[in-house]
Amino acid sequence: MLTTATTRNHGRLDDTTATRITHLWNAAYPTMRTIASHRINAYRRQLEDQIWNINPNHPQADALRAFMPTENAIRRSLKDIEDLRRVLGQLDRGTHRACTRSPGGFSVLAAYSAVRCLLAATGLNDCGLAAVYELAACLADAAEVRHRELAARDA
């Protein structure tokens, strides 16, 4: 569970923004983890079922083959969503490292990127997305402030 101190110490945020992000994160994280886990299970079932193998005698075999993902595409999607779930967990624990030399912590930019990737993987049937969208909006505001700070520093 993310704490305000972790968000504040590693995120270069003021107390108000850190508290808001922490509250929104803790409200949205269970939903984000559930969605990622459901996607992982779905990709694993597709691999087990070998959905790319179409019966050549099926009357619509060519049409089915045209819209069926390949084994490599499913494996790539599975790896991506597994990596996303790992990053979300690291951000939740405050142990995310942007690179091998950086200290572990919470990064607004990494959190914003991860939440956007998760939202890209959602479907119309996913429940509880209001909290995730609210978190994404708050992270977008904080990321914008951070980008301005970095631009001013580099100018």
Results as ranks from 00 to 15, higher is better:
Thr34Cys: 12
Leu119Met: 08
Asn53Ala: 07
Ile51Pro: 02
Val115Gly: 06
Ser113Asn: 12
Thr100Arg: 08
Pro30Glu: 14
Ile51Thr: 13
Val145Tyr: 08
Trp52Met: 04
Arg39Val: 09
Asp14Val: 00
His147Gln: 15
Cys99Asp: 15
Tyr112Arg: 09
Pro69Trp: 06
His147Asn: 14
Asn72Arg: 14
Leu24Met: 02
Pro59Trp: 03
Thr31Asn: 10
Thr95His: 11
Ala18Tyr: 00
Val115Glu: 05
Asp154Thr: 04
Leu124Glu: 15
Ala121Gln: 06
Glu144Tyr: 07
Leu129Arg: 11
Leu135Tyr: 02
Arg39Trp: 11
Ile74Arg: 05
Leu64Lys: 13
Ala66Met: 11
Ala18Gly: 02
Tyr43Trp: 08
Ala120Asp: 11
Arg33Lys: 09
Ala140Gln: 07
Tyr133Ser: 03
Arg93Trp: 04
Ile81Met: 12
Leu150His: 13
Gly11Phe: 00
Asp83His: 12
Gly104Asp: 04
Ile35Gln: 10
Glu134Trp: 08
Leu119Gln: 09
Ala63Lys: 10
Thr70Asp: 12
Arg65His: 05
Met1Thr: 14
Glu149Gln: 10
Asn9Ile: 00
Gln60His: 10
His147Arg: 15
Pro69Leu: 03
Arg33Ala: 09
Gln60Pro: 00
Val115Ala: 05
Thr7Pro: 01
Pro69Met: 03
Tyr112Trp: 08
Ala27Lys: 08
Asp49Val: 02
Leu91Asn: 14
Trp25Ala: 01
Glu82Trp: 06
Pro30Lys: 14
Leu2Gln: 08
Ala131Phe: 01
Thr100Tyr: 06
Gly105Met: 07
Leu119Asn: 06
Cys138Tyr: 00
Pro69Ser: 03
His23Thr: 11
